[in-house]
Design a protein around this nucleic acid. Structure first.
Length: 729
DNA sequence: CTCAAGTCTCCGAAC
DNA sequence: GAGACTTGAG
């Protein structure tokens, strides 16, 4: 094995122990990707047919890069290995096996936006008030149930909110199935259901996937865990790679217990620890280690590196978010000259997408090229979703959610009432909205104008639908877009925004053309499904020489010579909605911070702003506890308001905390409770509609005194006290 | 009944 | 700061 000698003994062991279950605990920068790549190459080189290998990665981009690397190591015979994200691999399995679960191969995949729209529509039909029961909350509760493999009949409600959720859940699932559509959770749930019910089918895939590898195992959820358990049952050649310290997706159902359960399920498993870090300086690694030691739950690790000591970590104390942007720009200028780096060597990370704005402004003003990972994703833009909805209807005429989306776009005089009549007709005749529209003349109580519009729309869509087999995806989309005329509409509008939309629609047309060129003969539904499953990181163009802006979440798996972690402020990082973050949440926030810290190779910057625009209001921030979790000896600081260097960070921060009003240019807002003597955070109150609740936050004064109240049934509400008429309990 | 403009609400990280 | 919801004119 010629490539083995480039690796350390632990890595070699992880690559060559191919029989039986293996768990690799891989610290950051320990060469995990290399291990996965070489392990697969090794499997192929010892004669395992590549189609028997299933490798589940965190992004499709990572999968493609790894695949190319493997091909370059062991040749073309490795091409046909199954590698991709859980969702894209399973979509592929579902396309092949759709008949046995009552779907067609061109089923639609609903993203969270689509799914929320469907939930709203279900709630409307069930007369459940979205004011009283937050559709988002219901959606995430349903998603949670699905991740736990709890189906509507088994969903046990323990309070009013859950009773409503149960009703919505069951109808939501009916509507998805009737629309030949699945949400992201179904892509996991449906195969598991099928495997459990159909022994033959499970055996088929157990035979196919004899060697299973899973990257980022710490971020798998219960459904993924069960799926792997089913598939690996027979041959037990399963290799999981992960790092508990980098688990950052509990909010979407990831379960750290999967790591512990792995050892229980496979007591004979080999455990290999990769503890040598090849990425970062000693300073950066030490800081990361100090931070993560504050967490109580973790597998003990002893990370080390042969890399140099490196430079100190620089803390930038900024006046506000604009100043933070300017400070970072200045440092990018200075460091690119000093360290002879390209723009692509810099990454700026933040907790939430909205923080990117002030950073973008600063970069734009200074003509520094940047690219953003995530944010408003291409395929989530309105105009793109509209075009995709039209295309989805061509391959899946039952897709009612897509129909609703485009029924009056562009405007055809079809309003809420017309759609309601159409919808009634469709459900009483058990047909899709599109097919109901085709029978518009039969629909009762509908205006002549609406009738014509529906007939015309249906006729157009059915016409293109019949052409799907005869024209290429690219030809048919161009013809359809032309007939809808949206490009002309954008041109006429001629605003900057409309031109951007015009460009985006052109871009998606090019994407379809590229798809047709790359995969001649592949049907349109493959394009649609592929694009539904792109991740933020997949859309990241790392070839461009530009500064990368990204959230800490999407930074996972990446590395950069210079990293800026911004917004180190209490409430933002660690993020919390209340003043006292939950201990479990705090630990997850700390892991997220740890992920950010360990992305840096040579130089790390931390920054915070003393005030920041949040929800179009100025809010005053105190520095994050996460700063003080790094030892002073590893830090140096630049205070943007006083002197460029000066005080050691902790001393200076302490001074600021003690006397905020004198140090800050704006005084801290002081809530005036005097006029509303009895109102305090923590008080129990009664509201006419929402019932009993507890005040969790107060803001504003006098007339505009506002309170955030946590109700036991209705969740959190933001109330103007002038109108809310709360009774104290 | 529809549409555009205006108002209000909500706000996290994402496959 | 975006999207859902409301309002008022046609």
């Amino acid at each position: 094995m010629p490539f083995l000698d480039q690796l350390n003994p632990k890595q070699q062991e992880a690559i060559t122990s191919v029989q039986g279950p293996v768990m690799v605990v891989a610290g950051p920068g320990s060469g995990k990707t290399r291990v996965l790549t070489y392990r697969i190459a090794h499997l192929v080189s010892i004669g395992v047919p590549s189609y028997q290998i299933l490798a589940l990665t965190f992004t499709n981009k990572a999968a493609n890069e790894m695949r190319n690397r493997i091909v370059s190591l062991v040749g073309d015979k490795s091409r046909s290995l199954w590698m991709g994200t859980f969702h894209s691999i399973l979509a592929r399995v579902l396309r092949a096996e759709c008949a046995s679960i009552g779907y067609t191969r061109s089923f639609s995949i609903y993203d969270s936006q689509d799914s929320l729209a469907l939930i709203r529509s279900v709630m409307k039909d069930l007369a459940i008030s979205p004011q009283q029961f937050n559709p988002q909350a219901i959606r995430s509760r349903i998603s949670g149930a699905k991740n736990q493999l709890v189906l509507p009949p088994d969903f046990a409600a323990s309070d009013l909110f859950e009773e409503k959720t149960a009703l919505v859940y069951s109808e939501y699932q009916n509507r998805l199935e009737a629309s030949d559509a699945m949400d992201f959770d179904d892509l996991l749930l449906k195969p598991i259901e099928a495997f459990r019910l159909q022994k033959k089918l499970l055996e088929k895939y157990q035979e196919r996937f004899r060697f299973i590898l899973i990257d980022e195992y710490q971020d798998t959820n219960h459904a993924q865990y069960v799926l792997i358990k089913l598939l690996a049952q027979k041959y037990r050649n399963v290799c999981v790679v992960g790092d508990d310290a980098q688990s950052i997706y509990a909010f979407r159902g990831a379960d750290i217990r999967n790591i512990l359960d792995f050892q229980r399920d496979y007591p004979d498993s080999t455990i290999i620890r990769l503890e040598q870090n090849y990425r970062s300086t000693k300073t950066i690694l030490a800081a990361a280690d100090q931070v993560i030691k504050h967490n109580s739950e973790q597998i003990a690790k002893n990370l080390w590196t042969e890399n140099s000591e490196g430079e100190k970590i620089t803390l930038l104390s900024c006046r506000d978010d604009r100043d933070e942007g300017m400070a970072i720009v200045a440092r990018i200028h200075a460091e690119s000259r000093r360290l002879k780096l390209d723009l692509r060597d810099f990454a700026v990370m933040y907790r939430m997408n909205s923080q990117s704005r002030s950073l973008e402004d600063a970069l734009n003003q200074n003509n520094i090229r940047y690219i953003m990972v995530g944010g408003v994703r291409f395929y989530e833009r309105k105009e793109i979703k509209d075009v995709m909805a039209y295309l989805r209807l061509l391959v899946n005429p039952k897709d009612d959610e897509s129909f609703r989306r485009i029924v009056n776009y562009p405007a055809r005089g079809l309003g809420e009432t017309a759609v309601a009549r159409l919808s009634d007709f469709a459900s009483s005749n058990s047909v899709s909205l599109l097919h109901a529209a085709a029978r518009a003349p039969e629909i009762p109580k509908i205006s002549g104008k609406a009738r014509d519009a529906l007939s015309r729309l249906a006729a157009m869509l059915l016409k293109y639908q019949s052409l799907v087999g005869q024209m290429s995806p690219s030809e048919i989309s161009r013809a359809l877009i032309e007939e809808i005329g949206i490009l002309h509409l954008f041109k006429e509008e001629a605003t900057e925004e409309a031109m951007a939309r015009w460009e985006n629609v052109q871009e998606i047309l090019s994407a379809i053309t590229a798809f047709t060129a790359e995969q001649p003969g592949a049907p349109l539904e493959d394009f649609l499904q592929e694009k539904s499953l792109l991740s933020d990181a997949d859309e990241w163009d790392d070839k461009k020489n530009a500064v990368t802006l990204l959230t800490l979440h999407s930074a996972k798996g990446l590395e950069f010579p210079v990293v800026f972690i911004t917004g180190l402020e209490e409430g933002l990082l660690p993020f919390s909605r209340s003043h006292t973050p939950d201990a479990a949440d705090l630990e997850e926030e700390r892991r997220l911070y740890y992920v950010g810290l360990t992305r840096a190779m040579r130089k790390l910057y931390l920054s915070y702003a003393r005030s920041r625009y949040r929800f179009s209001e100025v809010s005053h921030q105190s520095p994050s506890r996460f700063i003080t979790e790094i030892d002073d000896s590893l830090l140096e600081s630049e205070d943007r308001q006083t002197s460029p260097t000066g005080f050691p960070p902790t001393a200076r921060m302490a001074r600021m905390r003690r006397r905020p009003a004198e140090v800050f240019s704006d005084p801290m807002p002081d809530y005036d409770y005097d006029s509303e003597e009895a109102l305090r955070v923590g008080r129990q109150v009664l509201h006419e509609v929402f019932g009993e609740g507890k005040i969790v936050q107060l803001s504003g004064k006098g007339e505009s005194l506002k309170a955030v109240v946590e109700f036991s049934t209705a969740g959190k509400k933001n109330l103007m006290l002038k109108y809310a008429h709360l009774k104290l309990l």
